[in-house]
C-alpha cells in the first residue's frame, strides 16, 4: 500500500458564536489515495466545512483541530503560511459551486488562468499563455482562443465552470476538492462538466474529493463514498455497493428520492433518529 495522499484524523471544526459553540464537523477521519472520494450529506451535515478545513479556508470565527491533517506527509496544521500558500492552488485545488462567484469579474478568463499558473510555476508569459490555451482545450472549449479573451459574464454557467476547472487544474495539482461543482448547472451540462473532470482526474492520476448532496450522482461518479450526518461520518462504503448500505440514514436518503423506474407513493420519508447524531 502506498502512502496516502491525504490523511485526516479526528477533524473538528468549531464555530464560537454569541449563542454558544457550534461544532460543524465532529471528528471526521479518512484517508485518501489517488482515487475519487465522494462526501455526501444534507445541508448542515458539515460536508462543505470538511472540504474547506482541509484547504485552511474555514471562515472566521471557525476553529479547526485535528489529531492529524496531512497532505503528502506535510502537516497542514503546523505548516507555515508560506508552505500553505504554495500548496493551495498549486498542489491542492478547489472548485466551488458557482463559477459566477469564484471567477474574477473584471479579468478575462485567460488572464486568470495565466495568473493561477504563474503564481505557482516559474514560467514566461508566452509559456503560461500556451499552457492556458492547452488547458482550455483540455476542458473541451470549442474555441479556446476566443474563450481566452472573454470575461466571465460573457460565458454560460457550464462554460464558466469548465473555465474554473481549467484554472484549478493548470498547476497540475495532486488533489482536487470539488464542492458541489455542478449543482448550479443544468443536468445535461453538468454531465458534460463531470465527464471532463472525470477524464482529467483519470489522466493525471489526481486524488479527488467530490462533495455533494446528490447521493445518486456521487455514487455513480466516485469510487468510495463517505456519508455525513450532523458533522460525523455515519457510513463509509464502496460506491458500487451503495445498494447494500447499512446505516438507516444512507438507506433513507436512497429511498426518499422519486425515480422514473418505479412509482411509490407516498415516498418513504426519513425518520431522523436522534442517536445518529451522537
Amino acid at each position: 500500500m502506498m502512502k496516502p495522499l491525504l490523511e485526516v484524523e479526528d477533524l473538528r471544526v468549531r464555530f464560537h458564536l454569541r449563542t454558544g459553540i457550534v461544532e460543524a464537523v465532529r471528528g471526521v477521519s479518512f484517508q485518501l489515495g489517488r482515487e475519487r472520494l465522494g462526501i455526501v450529506g444534507e445541508s448542515g451535515s458539515g460536508k462543505s466545512q470538511t472540504g474547506r478545513a482541509i484547504l485552511g479556508l474555514t471562515p472566521p470565527p471557525g476553529e479547526v483541530t485535528a489529531k492529524r491533517l496531512a497532505f503528502d506527509g506535510i502537516d497542514l496544521l503546523t505548516a507555515s503560511r508560506r508552505t500553505l500558500r504554495t500548496l493551495r492552488g498549486g498542489r491542492v485545488s478547489m472548485v466551488m459551486q458557482d463559477p459566477k462567484y469564484s471567477l474574477n469579474p473584471v479579468m478575462t478568463i485567460g488572464e486568470q488562468i495565466i495568473e493561477a499558473y504563474q503564481a505557482h510555476a516559474k514560467a514566461s508569459r508566452a509559456e503560461a499563455r500556451d499552457k492556458a490555451l492547452a488547458m482550455l482545450e483540455a476542458v473541451k472549449m470549442r474555441d479556446p482562443g476566443r474563450v481566452f479573451s472573454l470575461y466571465p459574464h460573457e460565458v454560460s454557467g457550464g462554460m464558466g465552470q469548465r473555465a474554473m476547472i481549467a484554472m484549478m487544474l493548470v498547476t497540475d495539482p495532486d488533489l482536487l476538492i470539488a464542492d458541489e461543482p455542478t449543482s448550479a448547472l443544468d443536468v445535461t451540462v453538468s454531465m458534460e462538466v463531470l465527464r471532463i473532470l472525470d477524464e482529467l482526474v483519470a489522466e493525471r492520476g489526481m486524488g479527488l474529493i467530490f462533495i455533494s448532496h446528490d447521493l445518486k450522482l456521487v455514487s455513480s461518479f466516485c469510487d468510495r463514498v463517505l456519508v455525513m450526518y450532523a458533522g460525523r461520518v455515519v457510513e463509509e462504503l464502496e460506491a458500487r455497493n451503495l445498494r447494500e448500505a447499512k446505516h438507516p440514514y444512507t438507506q433513507g436518503l436512497m429511498r426518499c428520492l422519486p425515480t422514473l423506474a418505479d412509482d411509490i407513493r407516498p415516498l418513504p420519508t426519513l425518520n431522523r433518529d436522534p442517536s445518529w447524531a451522537l
Binding site: R34, E35, M191, D198, E199, A202, L260
Partner: peptide, 23 residues
C-alpha cells in the same frame, strides 16, 4: 431521452481509458 439519461446519474463512457486505482 437525453434529459432522462442525465437524470439517471453519471455514466462513464466505456470507450474512455479505464481508471487505474492506486493503493
Amino acid at each position: 431521452q437525453s434529459l432522462i439519461q442525465a437524470s439517471q446519474g453519471f455514466t462513464r463512457n466505456p470507450s474512455q481509458p479505464t481508471y487505474a486505482k492506486v493503493g
